[in-house]
Design a protein around this nucleic acid. Structure first.
Lengths: 252, 252
DNA sequence: CGCGATTTGTGCACACCTTCACAAGCGCCT
DNA sequence: AGGCGCTTGTGAAGGTGTGCACAAATCGCG
């Protein structure tokens, strides 16, 4: 993953929410990538009326191995109760805190083509800790358009607005050709996390995190497995028994 | 990852394209997930007029370490030339073959909300080896709508159409509540690879591959890093030098 | 109060992945 | 023909992640 393995400042035990500037024990990246999934599963369980969950139960709901789940939670010093399980509400609170979701984060979206429109209208963001506060596009014919109560602005205004609205996360949904330029503008505007939907590699300063989602790549990976499966059809076995678990979550 | 670690049939060396049913040396999952990125970089380079690339050059274009790139390519028995580099056209052909992209794969898309519409209109699919051949939705008010030259059909027709069109890959872009049902239908229709955009865990037979893309999860991971960075602001360093490389590709 | 059932937290072993460092191979120039 | 510089392919080392299996802890019940 990224080079910024800043050696976590020793400080405060997790669970100690007192000091405003709590530093984290360095969580494994793999764990971090799974926490959001646990969180989603916990919300589901909570809405279903559960007060506590066993690691087994939560693991099933999140589609992972229970040992892995326990180890992940132990990393954040989590408070389960032996013989009982985890308190759903408490665990939600803990994970949201670790992920920094207790403060609703402002996000801006650049590029309002097909995908950009869909993202702007995606209510999953709002319901899971984020708020899209600004939309930008380079195309003047799109500027002024109103989407989901927000007006599309010209990308020139990005710098000013980003500061005003205290935006730390930017989403790039432009064509590949424009993505690097947009990334540069975002970085200049103080954005330190970028979610990139454009099929290209971005180069950014070391203090900026980039995550990339490439829809075609996902399909190509599936295609490989299809190809492999097809080359195995002559073998024994064929369509086999039903079993859950061959889920393949995205994330690094 | 998935349990189907079918012990690869020994057969045919890669590069030996003669036998129609070539089995693969089992490529590491991590390598597979990067191949599409290499492919994209190669296409870019090719369009730029390059005939050959060094591992260093290609690695830079794909945003990875050059040693990793060489090892990845060596896994597929790739033919580079020492002192020269890789033949761009040949390497493209090799990777496309391994990924099974030489045959344009038929994909169906279920769920035509905001995201579904965007996916249906995404030209990145067509240009990278896939063709969306059918659209489905459960909502009768959407059935009949025409999108990108395709007519939305009712999900009841999925089984029949999937067989007719020989669809092996399905994309789920429905709300979470409907996703499992849709997955079941897809599986019954003979689909063996699913790309799931719904925020939920799917349970499917062991021979079916599922990849999940959850937009909110990506943001939550970024949020964690933001949170961590914020808790480090008091430390020495601050905004540091420009450097490429802290890219975080999605994929397992 | 003690015992058994249950479930967490974790030490350990293993598998996978990454990175370094270098030998082997190739082409070019003299 | 020979040597030199460049680049691939890979052995080995270190790191990260996974999963088993079990000890430690807690609850409920007799």
């Amino acid at each position: 993953m990224s080079q910024q393995r800043h050696g976590s400042t020793p400080g405060n035990a997790p669970g100690d929410r007192a000091g405003a500037v709590t530093a984290f024990p360095d969580l494994p990246e793999a764990t971090i990538a799974r926490l959001p999934e646990y969180l989603r599963a916990l919300h589901n369980l909570g809405e279903g009326g559960a007060d506590t969950v066993s690691s087994e139960g939560l693991a099933a709901a999140a589609g992972v191995n229970s040992a892995k789940l326990r180890k992940d939670l132990s990393h954040l010093g989590s408070y389960g109760t032996r013989g009982v399980g985890y308190d759903v509400a408490l665990l939600i609170e803990q994970i949201e805190y670790v992920l920094g979701l207790d403060q609703r984060r402002a996000v801006c979206l650049v590029g309002l083509g097909n995908l950009g429109h869909a993202l702007a209208g995606y209510d999953g963001f709002a319901s899971r800790g984020f708020k899209i506060v600004a939309l930008f596009d380079a195309d003047v014919s799109k500027v002024g358009e109103e989407i989901q109560g927000l007006t599309v602005r010209h990308i020139e205004d990005l710098g000013r607005v980003a500061v005003e609205e205290n935006i730390a996360i930017g989403v790039i949904a432009t064509p590949a050709g424009a993505a690097q330029t947009v990334a540069d503008v975002l970085v200049d505007a103080g954005v330190t996390s970028i979610l990139n939907f454009a099929p290209c590699v971005l180069s950014v300063p070391a203090n900026v995190d980039v995550r990339k989602v490439d829809l075609a790549i996902e399909l190509q990976i599936l295609s490989f497995h299809e190809h492999r499966k097809a080359s195995l059809t002559a073998l024994p076995g064929g369509r086999s028994a039903t079993a859950a678990g061959n889920q393949e979550a995205v994330g690094s």
